[in-house]
Design a protein around this nucleic acid. Sequence first.
RNA 1: GGCUGCGUGGUCGAGUGGUGAGGCAGAGGCCUGCAAAGCCUCCGACGCGGGUUCGAGUCCCGCCGCAGCCA
Length: 496
Amino acid sequence: MQSLRIYNTLTREKELFQPLNPPYVGLYVCGPTVYNYVHLGNVRTFMTFDVLVRYFRHIGYQVRYVRNLTDVGHLTGDGDEGEDKIGRMARLEQLEPMEIVQRYTNDFHQVLEKFNFLPPSIEPTATGHIVEQIEAVKSLIDKGLAYESNGSVYFDIQRYNEKGNDYGRLSGRILEDLLTETRDLDGVGEKRNPLDFALWKKAAPDHLMRWPSPWGLGFPGWHLECTCMSTKYLGNQFDIHGGGMDLKFPHHECEIAQGTGLNDVQPVRYWMHSNMLTVNGQKMSKSLGNSFLPAELFAGSHHLLEQAYSPMTVRFFMLQSQYRSTLDFSNDALKAAQKGYKRLMNGLRLLRDMEYIADEAVSIDPAQVEEVTKAVEGAYEGMNDDLNTAVAIAHLFAMVKKINQLYMQQVRPAQLGEEVFTRLKNTYVTFLADILGLKEERNESFEPLIDGLLDLYRGFKSEKQYDKVDQIRSVFKQNGLVIKDLKHRIDWAYEE
RNA sequence: GGCUGCGUGGUCGAGUGGUGAGGCAGAGGCCUGCAAAGCCUCCGACGCGGGUUCGAGUCCCGCCGCAGCCA
């Protein structure tokens, strides 16, 4: 099995990944709050973990991938104040909260399918786990780590730390500093300490989503659902927890506190955080007007976009950077990605029809063998080094060059030998399709039509009817395809 | 203001003590009816100022800029 190293936010180091119960891997990723169309930044996060799951499975692990949907409890202030995000949308659009949830859940699934994401093993919802959350609150109160105040229940951070825990470790925050910073703030109200966070909130009379509890009608705090659902399906301690960088504090910090408080064990062994997106060097935000939706990207319908970019182009584009780096969206970068993506896909098409040809007259060329071996091993080394898809892709380009050389008969399969040839073929196809999740975007039913046109082209070409030849070329071009006139054959490819 | 991370060639983007990233763009060549595709060759960088080292894009200090979280 490959040895994968993962950057653990908790230790700020790359660590060798060792699962608790091999060959099983438990992975939990914070899913979206379904109150609006899915944000491109979220897409990047889920893509990171999509590739992680794919790679784990490829190297022989059995993954249980849990990605939740937040459908209650996430407030507009991202803290304990403000309106429920879903409740707010329901009020504005005069719909049932669950109508909002369903609408944006559907959108979320649709978008992810376009990007060729694997479905999670379990996709639990917060409202589906109210009972578990109430039980968790009770347990935390029993343990002296939480207290009721005016119908709400809060986690007692000071008590938690007095018991030898370290609230703030994940995000590099010092409790004393946090206390100093927040001391003079008013609005503490029901809390003993301004840093304490809500486990259960009392519902105001006009609050739409509420459930009965030992503390009256209310709803769960945002952080609690992830603790309950992750430990329910993956155990009190599990392998990996992922999410966007923005969730490190306070969300994930609170999850650690809740999980540790409940089960006396650190809930997560490896914390992984993916970085943010920028647009033309600036952060992507609605107020700056530079935030576009996946659908706008596919349609090219945003004023900052010069053209449409297909889902696979965007997928390839995102994977060309390492997940812990910020990634900048711009037209030039996306156009470059489109060309690069098509180059890889053309290689895939060629390779599919390529068979090994034995040739006694040709001996194995060590230099050729080494080039292929280096590319294959390099691709794995990239993935093993904290999921460095950028490095893996660089080696795929080395492979596509070799594929083209074989196709152009500049290199003979026998120069590689059957074993190395097969290794090249398998690795290339596996990396693109299975690990990176990149697939051809085409309509296969049109292929006979393409072949028919190509026959006509051949005929005109041999008759030197160049006006007809050029005409057919232009038809291909209009459809994003190019005709390739080679010494030994005539073929087509995606226009890059 | 605090914490965390980043700043690489025309552009996007890997690398993190000792000649190679890679994609896109650009230049030349092979091929071609002309092209395109492909192949070969080339061009070229490490925010600014100090320091450590035989040697730094890579480590340390300061500054500037960008991003995330907190206030």
